[in-house]
């Protein structure tokens, strides 16, 4: 559990965070979202003490970060930076094992661990272990960045706009990867992005930050259904956001009355079409019910093609 208590940060008399209180629970994929310059990075870096608050305290599992041994603290936290930020003078394996070096793992163990993780992020170890960062595409580099962050099996992983420099296709694949890893590894992830779509897609819960103020915290659907301020409403409403929710699917005219033979899975109107798509990905013929109406797999395709024409 990460707790921010009355945290403020001032850079040379310029306030960057204003008296902020926030709790991130264990196992959450928590997203900090807001326009650029709002203070997300500042907040994130307080967790691994790259930045210290001007006033207030940050605690991890009840321990004050300010009082912790800085290197020990950081050895237990994974960190994924923009565009990978791999060391250009080291191979993929050396890069990925950097935290393990600090923890004095032996060579064999290190090698096996990196081998396993590369496979996990869909990079063939045979091909990639010995490559230099300059020989990787943006997406591959960021996968290695993720392996580096996961190497020491940290319970907490911080990601600061990790995908913002990638092309849309790679970005989508890596988002899927993060969701998959989060499920498999049962770790806490704090993810920073300025991209509202990305936030909605990934977040268990998210926090909207603007000009150093924490505007709203909650599940994506809740925030979209009940934005706490005009800014939050505007931020999430760019015309397409609404279309992502199942309630909108029903409003567009999809859904039929249930029949006795149906064996549907129940979803909420505040769930997104991504949840639905995920479900279908695993069980292609699965029916779902939303607000007592049944949606068939075919409906998703029809709906997608329809909103594609509108926008």
């Amino acid at each position: 559990m990460i707790e921010f208590e009355n945290v403020s940060k001032t850079y040379e008399q310029q306030p960057a965070l204003n008296d902020l209180n926030l709790t991130i629970n264990d196992g959450e994929l928590f997203v900090l979202v807001g326009p650029s310059g709002s203070g997300k990075t500042t907040l994130l870096k307080m967790i691994n003490k790259l930045i210290e608050p001007t006033t207030g305290t940050v605690k991890i599992d009840g321990q004050d970060v300010g009082a912790a041994d800085i290197r020990q603290l950081r050895h237990q936290i994974g960190y994924v930076l923009q565009a990978g930020a791999l060391f250009p003078n080291m191979t993929v394996e050396q890069n990925a094992a950097i935290q393990l070096d600090q923890l004095d793992w032996d060579v064999r163990q290190k090698h096996d661990r990196i081998n396993e993780l590369l496979t996990r992020v869909d990079l063939d170890p045979q091909t990639y272990m010995e490559r230099m960062p300059s020989e990787l595409s943006g997406g591959e580099a960021q996968r290695v960045g993720i392996v580096r962050a996961l190497a020491s099996q940290p319970k907490l992983i911080l990601m600061d706009e990790p995908f913002s420099a990638l092309d849309p296709l790679s970005r989508r694949r890596l988002q899927q990867l993060v969701l998959k890893l989060h499920q498999e590894l049962a770790c806490t992830i704090v993810f920073v992005t300025h991209d509202m779509q990305e936030a909605i897609k990934l977040a268990d819960r998210l926090a909207v930050i603007h000009n150093g103020d924490l505007l709203q915290v909650g599940r994506p659907q809740e925030i979209i259904a009940n934005p706490a301020s005009e800014f939050v409403a505007d931020f999430f409403d760019d015309g397409t956001t609404r279309n992502l929710f199942l309630s909108q699917v029903l409003k567009t005219g999809f859904g039929r009355l249930p029949e006795p033979a149906d064996q549907p899975v129940k979803l909420a109107g505040t769930d997104t079409i991504f949840t639905w798509a995920d479900l279908l990905n695993q069980h292609p013929r699965q029916l779902v019910t939303v607000d007592d109406l049944v949606l068939e797999p075919q409906d998703l395709l029809s709906y997608m093609s329809q909103i594609g024409q509108v926008s």
């Binding site: 950081r74 930076l81 250009p88 003078n89 911080l158």
Partner: peptide, 26 residues
Amino acid sequence: DPLLIEAADAFGMSRRFKLFRVQLPL
């Protein structure tokens, strides 16, 4: 690149390790 220095710090590198494995080689 300050991002690389930040990465080195974030992974809890010792000063020596950072100097000899990151800063001087770069």
